[in-house]
Design a protein around this nucleic acid. Structure first.
Lengths: 348, 348
DNA sequence: TAGAACCTGGACAACGTTGTCAGATGCAAG
DNA sequence: CTTGCATCTGACAACGTTGTCCAGGTTCTA
């Protein structure tokens, strides 16, 4: 009985049996490397040969397998972006800005949402590293990034955005949360308020801490002693934000103005305030769409999400181009946009 | 002179010389395949050996190179999403929904913005195919997708979203643009309007055509003859939309209500109307944030972007799991949300 | 105690590409 | 016709991983 030749493995779905350079070479009657040269536009191929190869490529519908290319070359021409939630209107423009810079450098963008979960952040980042992305832009959820040390040592360019890295030294691009919050609260104080509420994110988040710090600084500058009941931290879901807002406003000695720590809180507070009989002064951190059309317009401390992303991505590619500057902390200014709600005098 | 041994090429940056399984194997004193088994949790390794390997992995900071793995296995566990603009609030939730489904299937998401440019769409899609993504979710910018035929034939799962594919047969998930627009316009008619303006996107975009068709259908159903001046198509940038709006409202015999064809147009029109002395009835396609807080609230025909994304991604993974249903067209219903602006009577 | 059955571990090839290098070809000059 | 040179072309190895398959060892049974 004839022996069957040992047939090497054949995984079920091998890209559906796509043509390879070898196939193209065979069809065009040339060598493998010549096909490679044509595909990559390298010099040293006669026009006639090139034409033959090109015909074979078109006939077979060949498309270079970048996985193999990556393996050989060691660069993937892709970068990873880990953020909190792509559905949050703050991150859309940021992501798009990163993408544009990547595109200008011929790189693709892989992104993932951490859902503000440190474990998920790490899982995502490491998955991206396993893909050998050339670089990472990370909006951190966790506060310990030592797990990234071997990756960075291995040459993965890394830039943090919106919040600094935890326990490692790395580039970071952020908005001036402290200054922005201080200015916003000072603005309320300048309009006569003394009892001002602060509703912010969980205090493990850097921006939340900084904004709270800005709030406290502004109050202290004005010689106001802050009372505990004026501050709500960590209430992120709409229900709890609403509750916190109502509590502050219905206290025996209620606040006369509220400062909100981020865009989601802002939306919820604005919604609650809209349902009240009398207007309450308000300033929010982060601009929101249509804020100018409400009655009164919503005064905000705006940050430029796109600029954050752009700056970070540019810094990333500078790293990839070989610049070896020391890690830097870049802080972008915020901008107070007065629209009415922040200029209301204290009620009563 | 001693001959230098032929030194094989060494690309400048070889992942910064990361450890490989070979290195781990050497350090642990085991064979290459044994390391592979440990890394992939395959059976057939004694606990003692496994421990030794694990130690070596930790000591060296080894991380499997997924590029090589992909090359060997033929599946990348990543899918591509091509949309128009990640910064558009409509696409954020859609993208996030696709990501979640991908995550549930252990896949990463690579996404790119076409900026509504057919060439750029094709460029992106083909780049993703070169990466050998397992599947593609495409919000098409162009109207000819025959360039995808070889890819689909080669096994790349493909689902189109929001707009159907051009000149090829493929799965598509969309909102009922026609029905939604018809309902929205009929709603205005029901409130007494006869002269109704339509401001929509460029007529090469499928949704724009469908919504215009819905507008015409509703008008025809009511026996209203539409005049050319009531329709504006292709004015997408705020300036031109504003111009179109003002023109319709200042005509000798002006429209008494306006229907907007997408979220960006809606925002602009709402802004223009807010600046007018008297309210003008309005219904927009796509919900927008804070629409409920404006005076009057903005009546919209809402579509569920997240549901679109989820449905498409699920369909994609069904394809990848081997289902070979015929290409299908899934249409999701829209929902009319009455908030006040659409219930205004005709002025005068 | 021998043999069978089972288990663990490792050598090897292959995935599709690109860098190196040497061979082949063509042309001009001697 | 030979030599030299420049230009094209292709054979080959290597990138890091995983599938196959066999060798060697252990345990259990007869």
């Amino acid at each position: 009985m004839a022996e069957t030749a040992s047939r090497p493995e054949r995984p079920e779905s091998r890209y559906g049996n796509r043509p390879t350079m070898k196939d193209v070479a065979a069809r065009a009657g040339v060598g493998l490397k010549t096909v490679s040269r044509v595909v990559n536009g390298e010099p040293g191929v006669t026009p006639d040969t090139e034409r033959r190869v090109q015909e074979a490529i078109d006939a077979l519908g060949f498309r270079r397998n970048d996985s193999a290319r990556v393996l050989r070359k060691g660069r993937t021409a892709s970068i990873g972006l880990v953020l909190e939630d792509l559905a949050d209107p703050f991150y859309g423009p940021l992501s798009r800005a990163v993408e544009e810079v990547a595109r200008a450098h011929g790189a693709l963008l892989i992104n993932g949402s951490s859902a503000e979960d440190p474990d998920r952040e790490q899982e995502l980042v490491l998955a991206l590293c396993a893909r050998r992305v050339d670089g990472l832009v990370v909006i951190p959820a966790g506060d310990d990034h030592r797990y990234l040390e071997p990756e960075i040592a291995a040459g993965v360019a890394t830039v943090f955005v919106d919040r600094p890295a935890g326990k490692i030294d790395a580039d970071v691009v952020l908005s001036d949360s402290f200054g922005g919050a201080r200015d916003g609260v000072a603005h309320l104080i300048a309009h006569g308020h003394r009892r001002i509420g602060f509703i912010g994110d969980q205090p493990r988040i850097h921006t939340a801490i900084e904004r709270l710090r800005g709030y406290r600084a502004a109050m202290e500058d004005a010689g106001i002693v802050v009372e505990e009941e004026w501050m709500s931290l960590g209430a992120t879901d709409p229900d709890r934000v609403e509750q916190a807002t109502r509590t502050m406003l219905s206290a025996p000695d209620p606040v006369t103005a509220i400062f909100a720590g981020n865009n989601r809180v802002t939306v919820t507070v604005v919604r609650v305030l809209a349902g009240l009989p009398r207007p309450v002064a308000f300033v929010g951190f982060d601009d929101i769409e249509l804020a100018d059309l409400l009655q009164p317009g919503v005064t905000v401390v705006a940050q430029d999400a796109a600029q954050l992303g752009r700056t970070a991505a540019e810094r990333l590619f500078r790293q990839l181009d070989g610049a070896s500057d020391a890690p830097e902390r870049i802080e972008l200014p915020t901008r107070l946009i007065k629209r009415g709600s922040g200029e209301l005098p204290p009620a009563g």
